[in-house]
Design a protein around this nucleic acid. Sequence first.
DNA 1: ACGTTACATCGATAAATATCGATACAAACT
DNA 2: AGTTTGTATCGATATTTATCGATGTAACGT
Lengths: 306, 306
Amino acid sequence: MRRLDNIDLRLLRVFVVLADEGGFHDAQIALNLSQSTLSTHLAALERKLGGQLCERGRAGFRLTPFGESTLAAARRLFDDIEGFHVRIGQDRHRLVGRLRIGILDGVVTNPHLGLQTALSRYMDYAAEVFVDLVLGTPQELEQALLDGERDVVIGAFSQKVPGIAYIPLHREPQALYCGRGHKLFERPAREIGQADIEAALFSVRGYRHFDDLYRVNHPRASASIVQMEAQVMLILSGHFIGYLPRHIGEDWVRRGQMRVIRPESYGFESAHFVATRRLKGERPLIDAFVRELRAVAGSSSPEPVR
Amino acid sequence: MRRLDNIDLRLLRVFVVLADEGGFHDAQIALNLSQSTLSTHLAALERKLGGQLCERGRAGFRLTPFGESTLAAARRLFDDIEGFHVRIGQDRHRLVGRLRIGILDGVVTNPHLGLQTALSRYMDYAAEVFVDLVLGTPQELEQALLDGERDVVIGAFSQKVPGIAYIPLHREPQALYCGRGHKLFERPAREIGQADIEAALFSVRGYRHFDDLYRVNHPRASASIVQMEAQVMLILSGHFIGYLPRHIGEDWVRRGQMRVIRPESYGFESAHFVATRRLKGERPLIDAFVRELRAVAGSSSPEPVR
DNA sequence: ACGTTACATCGATAAATATCGATACAAACT
DNA sequence: AGTTTGTATCGATATTTATCGATGTAACGT
């Protein structure tokens, strides 16, 4: 089926900006598009509308009579479109404002959580929301939530802080890895004993220092990281073992740069939550986003943990 | 840059048809889309608009209040869009009506003519034109043109008929081919002599019967075709040699199913024209299409041959 | 209870659209 | 005459969108 649109609103908007800016130079800055893209769009619109909209080139930029009438008609049409939104009553539900999200580092890339998908679906109807997104450690994120600096945070939170509601989204498998060059890399799994683990240099997640140590009965950490990229780097150096979410680790395994170490013994799952402050009143921006997160994580997850 | 459109007109049109038809069954017929496509479109529109438009399922189809207001607002918006066209004065140049095109068989796939591109560009601004397209032989096409049954025809016309204007578009290389299994298929080119050609079963283009015979000094044709597909079939059978436009033949050569026979000796070029009747008065539908054909064929070709 | 029907979802493929850097061309400027 | 500037075109890549068949689910009809 051919496109049902008989005009292309995007091309009209490009044209309006071009006309307002009086040329490609300022318009490409305003629209963050290259000069060649603008040229192509303008030409496409002219073909679709069947007339030349403007004269442009070294001699300058000037609207033709057809361009003048099109510019006026386009503005009128944008008003009509605005009226459409008003008529369907969208104004009442319009999501406007700022959504401040905090995400535990290393979680963004988790395909099961589908954070990008959730955000994309949210932006479908909340395009006017300004999204402010940072990565951080669990402590930082929970603190920011309590301090009112973040509206919603996502990650693995082990303790339940009063005043915060936690909605489980997903349980993420984690495993112990070493990189190519590490003495355990080529060792058959059955020949890797507890002593080998304890003898290996161990890199812990700073915010899970003792958890990680206790999990493998390691006497002491030799490195501490916060970002998963840093953990990846340390492991890839071939000198450390350490924990990674499996969705990250398996990528490197596929590339032949890491191997997982006895996941049946040392693997575990961390529960991921979306957390918000317990507050009175409606918070449509936050609630809508949480709804999308839950929908995409594919869970009809239980009510928030008390 | 994200899409500038904040609504999607196509999805609105799908919704309107769904509402009018009262369900997916009739709507998929009306729109020529599958049921799953309609479902996906409706869901996407609901997400974008932030509300449920209708209840549907085995229990029946019923608009919600939001759907009712959206339906009315959509119709109003389509009127506004119509108004946009009127305001930019497109009505005066509106191309409406029927364009009856005739094309010589085997020419449609010629990449140098770019017929699809020309038609696509034409339809960009002439979407309301009903295109009636047939394939035929040169004689059929010229006759249909003279009889007023075709508006514009494209192909290789060897004779200039009075009352018809010919605009050259492109010169198309033709060559002699045989298929795998033919005794000439594996023969080195330098070992293929005139006697071999004359001994081979020869398939001619019915409308170029004697031209084709004279071109290779062949005593007599053993088959005669009109459609290039038929020629392809005969050659592929491994029993005939025959002429094909090179853009068709080379495809089969690449697949190892045909080989070209001494193109330096037996190849030639046929000149392709777009032909229209010489008539008084304006013919915007035809002229616009001819303009696109010429633009795409990349020629600032000379004036029509007298 | 079972079969049928209407829609939703999934995974996949194809087509359309957007984008850009490099280069060409023409006009203005020096 | 040479340089600079503004736009057009080309070829390429990436992203988005459209589409569908298969399958699942739920409600209706028998």
